[in-house]
Amino acid sequence: MKITLERKNTEYLLEAKGVSGNTVMIDHSGMETVQGVSPMELLLMGVGSCSAIDIIHILKKQRQEITSYKVVVEGERYLLDDSMPFKSMHVKVILEGEIDAQKAQKAADLSFEKYCSVSKSFDKCVEITYEVELKTV
């Protein structure tokens, strides 16, 4: 896996590009005008999107009808020398549709405990908790 970063202005704005050619704008969150997401936000987005792909895939295989999928990821940071890494993350998965609650919970369990490479990358250093909220239609 490989990405490239290219500076796009005279400050901190960077364009990240993956092998697919798709791009993400990254910026310093302390700037007056922020034109991209921060690197720390990208980490939260990675956990949320990786688990989303897993959960949607598992539920589709079980013929569950997802009409809406939303994820909220919150991270708690702490001061470590001169940096502020994540101490913990909490992921709230909000599903709507014709979905069996037990199947939704099992899909989340499988994602966070077995499949999600992003959250598994944090196993030794960040506590990741999750919950599933199922809204009926």
Rank of each mutant, 00 (worst) to 15 (best):
Q102L: 07
G30P: 13
S117D: 03
T10H: 12
D81K: 15
Q62D: 15
V71Y: 02
N22E: 08
T67Q: 09
P39S: 04
I55R: 01
I26Y: 00
S117L: 05
M25R: 13
A16Q: 06
D109M: 04
D27G: 03
E98P: 01
K120L: 08
K70A: 12
G48L: 01
T136Y: 09
T129N: 02
S51D: 09
V137R: 01
L59W: 05
M1Y: 11
Y115E: 10
L110W: 10
G48C: 01
P39C: 02
T129V: 06
V137S: 06
G75W: 02
L14E: 08
S29C: 13
E76D: 13
M84S: 13
K114C: 03
V91H: 06
E133Y: 01
E65A: 03
D54G: 06
D123G: 13
E127N: 14
F112L: 05
M25G: 02
E6W: 15
V137N: 11
Q105E: 10
Q35H: 11
I3W: 12
E113G: 04
H28L: 12
E41F: 01
S121M: 10
Q64R: 01
Q35F: 02
C125P: 05
K120W: 13
E74R: 09
M1F: 11
Y78A: 13
T23F: 03
E127V: 15
M31Q: 15
D109K: 00
E15N: 07
V73M: 07
E6K: 15
G97M: 07
A108H: 06
S20C: 05
K70M: 06
E113Q: 14
V93D: 10
Y115V: 04
Y78Q: 15
C50P: 08
D100W: 00
K106G: 00
V34E: 01
G21F: 09
I94L: 07
Y12P: 10
L79P: 11
G30I: 07
L43C: 12
I53Y: 02
I94K: 05
R63D: 14
A52G: 03
K103I: 11
G97F: 06
I56D: 09
T33I: 14
P85Y: 03
K60T: 12
Q64D: 09
E133F: 02
K61S: 06
C125M: 13
P39V: 04
L80Y: 08
L95I: 01
I66D: 03
S49E: 03
I94P: 02
T67A: 06
L134V: 04
K92N: 09
R7M: 04
M31K: 15
M84P: 13
E98W: 00
L59I: 01
L110N: 05
L13Y: 00
L13K: 10
S20K: 07
I26S: 02
L44V: 10
V126L: 09
A107N: 02
A108S: 10
D54K: 03
L79T: 13
L44C: 07
M84Y: 06
H57N: 12
L134T: 03
A107F: 06
Q102K: 11
S51Q: 04
E65H: 01
V132A: 05
G30Q: 10
C116F: 03
Q64Y: 04
E15V: 06
D123L: 14
V91N: 04
C125H: 14
S38Q: 05
M40N: 13
V19G: 14
T4L: 05
N9W: 06
M45P: 08
K87Y: 00
K61V: 09
H57Q: 14
I94S: 12
C50Y: 06
G48F: 00
